[in-house]
Amino acid sequence: MVNDAPEIVLLPGLDGTGDLFDRVAPHLAREFKVNVVRYPQDPTLGYAGYVELVRHEIGSRPVYVLGESFSGPVAVLVASQLRDQVRGIVLAATFIKNPWPQWLMRRAARVDPRSTPRNIRDAMLMGPFSDKELRDKVEDIVRALSRPVRAARLRAAAEVDVRRDFMRLECPVLALHGRSDWLVRKAPMQKAIGEKGRARMIVFPAAHMLLQTRPAETATEIIEFTRSSAEENYEA
């Protein structure tokens, strides 16, 4: 990576740790300065709080922003507020409106994730593309995540709707999704991408955790996206 490399800010999924970017980040580091944001375990934070935290982290620097899963709406709102400062956003395995009925997500917020059999949870998150190291890492993160924080984030996701903000974005948008994602259906994002200009979607043979199970392939697409968007901006 050269000193004047563009910066990409990675916003984590529901766990908020940023630790699950450890596989894709080295691939991105060939092209970018990689900045992994880590959310505090604070149950009082909603989406507005996470947006403010990310804006403070970015400061006045020009950046690309990647929002994974829970953080997709954060990426959209940050880009809508910072405008030209955000060169483009990547939405990975995520949503712009609550992905499940509100009652179901609120009920899930009351469930202890440790009560879900590990093999079922791993199948939903990783499908047949997992490995022992990744499964063990997810287990450690699930056990460490505060239940009040997890519940607060699920309640926030149950109510979120940033479709209008998404449609008004002027920066380029790339959506990445797993073909076998059981947690976040790809159809709503496909529909939104199809209705919006300067946006495209790539579907991978993967489950929800595509950045972790397909790190090299997803990083390649992200790099190509940022290169093409930079050329587009230069020509404009």
Rank of each mutant, 00 (worst) to 15 (best):
G197K: 14
F129I: 03
L145K: 07
R163W: 01
V184M: 04
R143Q: 14
A144F: 02
D165A: 15
K196M: 09
S146L: 00
R179M: 13
R135A: 09
L183R: 03
D161G: 11
M167N: 02
A158K: 08
V160I: 15
E139I: 00
E139Q: 12
V142H: 04
D131G: 03
R185S: 13
F166P: 00
V162Y: 07
V149Y: 06
V184L: 03
A175M: 13
V160S: 11
A144Y: 03
M201H: 06
A175P: 01
R163E: 04
R135I: 13
P172N: 01
V173P: 01
S130A: 15
I193G: 09
D131P: 02
K132F: 00
E159F: 03
H177R: 05
L176A: 04
A187S: 12
K191Q: 14
R168H: 13
R185E: 13
R200K: 15
V160F: 13
G197R: 13
A152I: 02
D131S: 03
A187N: 14
R164G: 04
L145E: 09
P148H: 04
K191W: 11
K196N: 07
A144L: 12
K132W: 02
K132C: 00
S130M: 04
W182N: 13
K191G: 05
D161M: 09
R163D: 00
F129N: 15
V142K: 09
R185V: 05
D165T: 02
A187I: 14
C171L: 02
K132D: 07
S180Q: 12
R168T: 06
A151D: 07
C171A: 06
V203A: 10
P205T: 10
L176V: 11
P148M: 01
L183C: 02
F166R: 05
F129D: 14
K186Q: 10
D165E: 15
K186R: 14
L154W: 07
L145I: 11
V203R: 11
K132M: 03
V173I: 15
D181H: 07
A152C: 04
R164C: 00
R153T: 13
G194Q: 05
E139A: 15
K191Y: 10
M201Y: 04
P188C: 02
R164Q: 07
I202G: 09
A175Q: 05
R135M: 10
L174Q: 03
F204T: 06
Q190Y: 06
A156R: 12
F129A: 15
L174A: 08
H177T: 02
V142S: 06
L134S: 09
